[in-house]
Amino acid sequence: MGDIKRKGAEERQLVIFRLYGEEFGVEITKVREIVKPREITKLPNVVDFVEGVTNLRGEVIPIIDLKKRFGIEATEMTDDSRIIIVDISDNRVGLVVDDVTEVLRIPDADIDPPPRTIAGLKAEYIQGIGKVGERLLILLDVDKILTTAEKIELQAESLQEELVAAAGED
């Protein structure tokens, strides 16, 4: 978090994906692969954002709907929908997102530390806010998001506004 903004020419590679129109990023080092929606076996007695499990080359992997994790409506699977397979704390997990747009290199200098909270998303779940021209990207700390039991309620409507405001403070 705090160490993200370092002087020099260091940069990071991010996988950029969309949730309700907003752009988010996750560090490419965490990402194992990106797959198309596939058959998911439901699980009984689990929290609602756990969609179930799927078979990825013989491995049984839990699938999580990120939008549901953020307390918003369930994802409608479309042709654009993707599952980002990430490795977090020794676990492989699939994250359902609306679309994966690109892989970007962003210099550390263009990443701002997160504001204390943004649209209901606490700073501890965010690694920073990346600026690419006019675009503002929220760099998610997926480890924290998936390992905490805390309820997260993202206010999607005010997200863009707060993002711009937060970026403007810098």
Partner: peptide, 27 residues
Amino acid sequence: IKSLSSILGDVKGVAGATVLGDGTVAL
């Protein structure tokens, strides 16, 4: 038998999962 990811915690009623011949996951 494949155990479920520890990130899911203890899933009541499910001892694990298995991958069937056609690739589907059975609980």
